[in-house]
Simulated assay, not measured.
Amino acid sequence: MIKYISLLLSLIISFNSFAQKKKGRENHNLVVIQKVSTDGTTFVIRRGLKDDVLPNQRSLFSTKDISLVAQAITVNREYSQWRALQNSAVIPFKRGDIINLSYSVEKVWTEIPRVISDENYRLTMQQAIIKKDPSKKKDFQKRKKRVQTNYQFLVGSTVALSESTQNVQDVDGTRTGLTFNGRYLRNYKKGLYYHFGLRYDGETYVSTTPNVTEETTRIFGYTGLTLRLNDIWKKTKALPYLALDIGIGTSNTAVDDLTKSGLATILPAVRLGIEYKAFKKTSFLLEAFAESISANEEFSESVNNNPTQQKTTITNVGINLGMNF
């Protein structure tokens, strides 16, 4: 019994070693061009028999700009010499270049986009370039701090959870409205944006006792911060985000034949949203939000010697739908 178990373990270990070796041959490797021949038709890399490179082997050599299929013509333990399959082709590499080596030639069509999008490949290339020329470090830092901007346009609906008006007895009623937003976003650091926006609100308040209808319009300018949670749901096109707004603007209310107007503030509004990337430069937005709005309004004329100024505080919740460009 022990003999059979030992034999089974040996087979498993042998199979695992073979699979790892085969997997290693499929792996992509960064190699340095050691030498290019004077006629530009062959090149040498530090990959040899110990790295599973065999004479007449064909492999794919790629950079961000070009891919080349070459054949090993001379191989020793440490090094190998390669020539392009087209004998007349001139090698597009030079000594010291860092290129990507793939043993699988069949992957040429998937290799090119992988090289372009591979973050580790880009970082390794950057480090090699900086090591060769330290002055290039500033150029890469500037690219890293690239400014990202977005424009957003949304429409939404609101409903008031609570409302109180100074010098007015609480009455039963409902307040609903529509809101329109336009925003400009600019990145501050990775995932964190500051934004500026304009907003238009149109609300209707209907009370049952007494039977009164109010129509209110507001225009706000606002600013705040947006945090895009890039590390959540990485494998989907949906990107969640959080945002905080504060704003100031004007409020105008019509009650029967009377009007009142004044200053209004948003302190604050909190938004939780999802951005769905439908296209390369365009995405759809869905937001749920809660906010506190305060309006200090003054009647255009006094009524029955009542105070002409009123302060109204409203707690709203709502949903926005829109697009991001």
Results as ranks from 00 to 15, higher is better:
L7H: 06
L11P: 01
L11W: 12
I12Q: 06
F15E: 09
K22G: 08
K23L: 11
R25F: 07
R25L: 13
R25G: 00
E26Y: 13
E26T: 10
N27W: 10
N29Q: 03
L30E: 11
V31L: 08
V31D: 07
G40Q: 10
T42D: 10
R47K: 15
D52Q: 12
N56T: 13
Q57S: 12
Q57V: 09
R58V: 13
F61R: 07
F61M: 11
K64N: 14
I66F: 13
I66N: 08
I66W: 06
L68A: 03
I73V: 15
I73L: 14
N76P: 10
R77M: 07
R83Q: 15
A84H: 06
L85K: 04
S88T: 14
P92H: 07
F93V: 06
R95W: 00
N100P: 00
L101M: 13
V105H: 02
E106R: 11
E106H: 13
V108H: 08
E111K: 05
I112K: 06
I116G: 03
N120Q: 08
N120F: 03
N120M: 02
M125E: 10
Q126G: 00
I130Y: 03
P134Y: 09
S135A: 14
K136I: 14
K137D: 12
K137G: 04
Q141L: 11
R143T: 06
R146S: 15
V147D: 10
Q148C: 03
Y151S: 04
Q152T: 07
F153K: 03
F153V: 15
V155D: 00
S157E: 11
S157C: 07
A160R: 02
S162K: 14
S162N: 15
E163Y: 08
N167Y: 14
Q169K: 14
V171P: 01
T174I: 15
T174S: 14
G177K: 11
T179F: 05
G182S: 09
L185Q: 12
R186V: 09
Y188C: 07
Y193F: 15
Y193H: 07
Y193E: 04
H195C: 01
G197K: 08
L198Y: 08
R199G: 04
D201K: 12
G202S: 15
E203Q: 15
E203V: 10
E203P: 01
S207P: 05
T213M: 04
E215L: 12
F220P: 06
Y222L: 10
G224K: 05
L229F: 03
N230C: 01
N230W: 02
K234W: 04
K234Y: 07
L239C: 01
Y241A: 04
L242E: 01
D245W: 02
I246T: 03
G247C: 01
G247L: 03
N252K: 14
T253D: 02
A254I: 10
D256L: 11
L258E: 05
G262C: 02
L263F: 11
A264F: 02
T265W: 04
L267F: 01
A269K: 14
G273C: 11
E275T: 04
A278F: 08
K281N: 14
F284L: 15
L286M: 14
E291Y: 01
N296I: 09
F299K: 10
E301Y: 15
N305Q: 14
N306P: 00
N306V: 04
P307H: 04
Q309L: 01
K311C: 03
G318A: 14
N324M: 11
